[in-house]
Simulated assay, not measured.
Amino acid sequence: MFFSVVIPTYNRKPILEKCLRALEKQQLSDHKVTDYEVVLVDDGSTDGTLEWLTEHSAEFPHVRPFVQNHLGPAAARNLGVEKAQGDTIIFIDSDLVVTEQFLQSHADALVDGKEKLGDDRLFTYGAVINTCNFDNPTSEPYKITDFSAAYFATGNVAIDRKWLEKVGLFDTGFQLYGWEDLELGVRLKKLGLKLIKCPEAVGYHWHPPFSLADIPNLIDKEIQRGRMGVLFYQKHPTFEVRLMIQMTLLHRVLWGILSLGGMLNERTLAPFLQWLIDQGKPQLALEVARIFLNWYNVKGVYSAYRELQT
């Protein structure tokens, strides 16, 4: 198989360099992978990403760069698939640093999965480990908070190109943050594709250490995610989708209770969050902040849904 690794990027030059260098170090141990390319789609970056890549192009022989106006990750991934030369697409994000066995592990899982199922209606989903260690991201151990129950998420997934083309690629109507990949997953599930877990294909998802200055942006993302969740539900009005986007009475009660009706928020929890950060526990501080971040998300979902009813 010929892999096309499709990566959308927007203003992530420092971690993108680590992402691309890791992909140049892939160790392919058998004939399953004939070759691979990295299809990088710059989504209108303003941080010198393209200039840097042009200057260092000789260091990245597998990379084929493309550029678009700032249209969002859904449009960028669609352009990446359109330009891809491979028969198998791997989606990762530009802040993901993979191991040297990444491509081979996906290839092994795809071949084994097809043999076991007797069918090619499948895709592989690798492991994603979150880290804020920029210098050595692949040293981060797996944590319980890294578990994902998602069916299809573009952080680390490999799929035959034909299924993407048959299902219609990503819906570019998802222009705000969230849900464009899971919505495509719902359509793939309707085609009968099976998820094959591939924990050996590990990607380390880097993000800066959490600080109180991040909170306004995180709140805005949760509100956006709520609005896009309602668009997701409009396309697929099922109870399963309501659960995914947290548009149920259970979620309103749960996060309402955990946040004490909003009393535990970015202001009242700020001293405790800062204390955790000062203790060298920014990831734990972020998990605590999710108490009010999820409450903002639930409120955003219902606010957007009410707007549709009026």
Rank of each mutant, 00 (worst) to 15 (best):
N69T: 14
F174I: 06
I92H: 02
G192F: 11
G229F: 01
D146N: 05
R267P: 08
H70C: 14
K32P: 06
D220Y: 13
L20W: 01
L284K: 07
I15L: 03
Y125N: 13
P14Y: 03
A76I: 02
E37P: 03
S148F: 04
Y36I: 03
E287T: 06
R12E: 15
N294W: 08
A158G: 07
I219T: 06
D42I: 15
I245V: 05
S148M: 07
D120Q: 10
W52T: 06
A149G: 14
M228H: 11
E100G: 00
H31N: 15
H56K: 03
T54D: 13
N217Y: 09
L16T: 05
D119R: 09
D30A: 05
L218T: 03
L164H: 01
Q246D: 12
K281S: 05
P216D: 15
T310H: 05
A84S: 04
D43N: 11
L103M: 06
V301W: 01
Y305S: 00
Q68M: 10
E240W: 04
D146G: 10
I7H: 03
Y151W: 09
L96C: 12
I219L: 06
G173K: 03
L40R: 00
P216T: 08
F147R: 14
T49E: 04
H106S: 01
H205W: 11
G280A: 00
I89L: 00
Q246P: 03
D43I: 01
P199S: 09
F292A: 02
P14R: 01
E59N: 07
D30I: 05
Q283D: 14
V253Q: 02
T9L: 11
E17P: 13
K281F: 04
Q283C: 02
V301D: 00
L122F: 07
L40T: 04
V298Y: 00
L258K: 08
V98Q: 02
M1S: 14
M228L: 13
C19W: 02
D35Q: 10
C132H: 14
L286F: 14
V241K: 01
L50C: 12
G262C: 08
K25T: 10
G262S: 06
K25I: 06
R64A: 06
L195K: 15
L193E: 09
A150M: 12
Q104R: 01
